[in-house]
Amino acid sequence: MQETKRQKQVGQLVQKELSDIFQRMGYNVTDGGIISISAVRMTPDLLEARVYLSMFQIKDPAAMLEQIKERGWEIRKDLGTRVAKQLRRIPELSFFLDDTLDYVFRMEELFKKIREDDAGKENQ
């Protein structure tokens, strides 16, 4: 089902504020890696936000995701103080790993390998 205009607006607001919160908490650059919020999807009732995190060069993304989930109440509290004037109820936050970046890198490696194999066959 496609998101409504209001879902998209609230999702963008939550994404912007969460990005600021992550930067203030020091999550955006950690252990030599970068964490960014790639997308926020809102449920139709706007009571839950599904936050997709992209992690680049993080040694253990699953452990980092758990660390963020453990501090989820604190992140939600900060979000509440920032968007209290725009939203009646602060959405529950659910964090997920966005593996799109990993998928892109894997596809690039496969295409590179295919090109190398094709070049090797032409030289024979």
Rank of each mutant, 00 (worst) to 15 (best):
L93Q: 11
A63D: 13
L13F: 04
V83Y: 04
K59M: 03
D118M: 11
L18S: 02
R6D: 04
T43L: 09
M42G: 03
R82A: 15
K77C: 10
L53A: 10
G26C: 06
M64S: 05
A49E: 13
D118Y: 07
V29E: 15
A39M: 07
Q86I: 13
I114E: 06
L79K: 08
D78F: 10
P61W: 07
E3V: 00
L13A: 03
S94G: 05
Q12H: 04
L79A: 04
G26I: 01
K16F: 06
Y27V: 00
F22H: 10
D102C: 01
S36I: 00
E66N: 12
E116A: 13
K5Y: 06
Q15L: 05
F105Q: 14
V83Q: 02
R24Y: 12
R82L: 11
K59F: 10
T30S: 05
Q57S: 14
E66P: 00
L87S: 06
R88E: 09
R115V: 00
D118W: 03
G120I: 05
K77T: 11
F56V: 13
E74I: 07
G32N: 04
P61M: 12
R82T: 03
Y27R: 01
Y52S: 12
E70W: 08
S19E: 10
S36L: 01
A49P: 05
E3R: 05
Y52M: 11
E109K: 11
M1R: 06
D31F: 08
R89Q: 14
P44S: 04
S54N: 04
K77W: 15
A49Y: 09
S38V: 00
S54H: 01
T4F: 10
N28T: 15
G72F: 02
R88V: 11
E3S: 06
G26D: 08
T100K: 13
R71G: 15
V51G: 05
W73I: 04
F22D: 04
L13R: 03
E48C: 04
V14L: 03
K69Y: 09
E17F: 01
V51L: 10
M64E: 10
T81W: 12
E66W: 01
V51E: 08
I68T: 11
F22T: 04
T81L: 13
A62C: 00
Q23F: 08
P91F: 11
L87Q: 05
R24Q: 14
E70R: 14
L110G: 00
V10Y: 05
T100M: 14
I68W: 10
M107Y: 11
F22P: 12
K121H: 10
Q57V: 11
Q2S: 11
T4W: 09
E116D: 13
E74A: 07
D31K: 12
V10M: 07
L13D: 02
M55K: 10
E108S: 05
S38Y: 04
T4S: 15
S19Q: 09
D20P: 01
W73P: 02
